[in-house]
Simulated scan of single mutants.
Amino acid sequence: MAAIDFSRAASGSATVANRRGSFFSALIGAIVSWNDARLTRNALNDLTDRELEDIGLTRSDIEDVAQRYS
């Protein structure tokens, strides 16, 4: 009786598919992080200096906050 083992070919193609999926997941994650930072930056820039002071920030802190929380 003969048997054919297809597990090697299947696992090789699954690895390629997993790499593509990982690449696109990482790409989408990077885009989402960039957009979150952009929205945070824009929202903080719309505040007055007084409003920023009330929450304990200055204009020079905006970029750091946007990068940290995105």
Rank of each mutant, 00 (worst) to 15 (best):
G29Y: 00
D49C: 03
F24E: 12
T58L: 03
L47I: 06
E53C: 02
A17L: 14
Q67P: 00
F24W: 15
L44D: 01
R68W: 05
T15W: 08
E53K: 08
R19T: 09
V16S: 06
D36H: 12
A10F: 14
A43L: 10
L27S: 10
N18H: 01
T15K: 11
R38P: 04
F23D: 11
T48Y: 04
I4W: 06
V32N: 11
D49K: 08
T48L: 09
S11L: 15
A2C: 00
E63I: 13
R38M: 13
I31K: 12
D61N: 13
E53R: 13
T58V: 03
V32L: 11
E53D: 15
S33Y: 13
F24S: 14
A66P: 00
A17W: 02
T15E: 15
N42T: 14
N35K: 15
R8F: 01
S25N: 14
T15S: 14
A2K: 12
D5S: 03
A66N: 00
A66T: 01
N45T: 13
D46A: 15
A3D: 10
A26D: 04
W34T: 04
Q67F: 01
D49V: 04
I62M: 08
S22H: 04
R68M: 11
R19S: 07
G56A: 14
G29T: 02
L47G: 06
S22K: 09
A3E: 13
R20N: 11
D64W: 05
A43K: 07
T48V: 07
Q67M: 09
R20D: 10
I4Y: 11
E53V: 03
R8Y: 01
A37N: 03
A9L: 13
N35S: 13
A3P: 00
R19I: 14
E63S: 08
V65T: 03
S13G: 02
A66D: 01
E63G: 05
E63P: 06
T15P: 00
G56H: 11
L47R: 12
S33K: 14
A2H: 03
R59I: 05
G21R: 07
R41F: 11
Y69K: 02
L44A: 08
R20E: 11
A14G: 01
D5T: 01
A30I: 02
D36G: 00
A26P: 00
S7F: 07
G29N: 04
D5V: 01
N18G: 09
G12A: 10
L27T: 06
R50L: 08
R50I: 07
L52M: 03
A37I: 04
N18V: 07
F24Q: 12
G12K: 14
A14E: 13
D36P: 00
R50V: 09
L47Q: 09
S70Q: 02
I31P: 00
R38L: 15
L39C: 06
I28T: 15
L52C: 03
S60T: 15
N42V: 09
N42Y: 05
I4M: 10
I55G: 02
R68T: 14
A37V: 06
A26L: 02
V32C: 05
N35A: 14
I28D: 10
D46G: 10
S22V: 06
R68G: 05
R38K: 15
F23T: 09
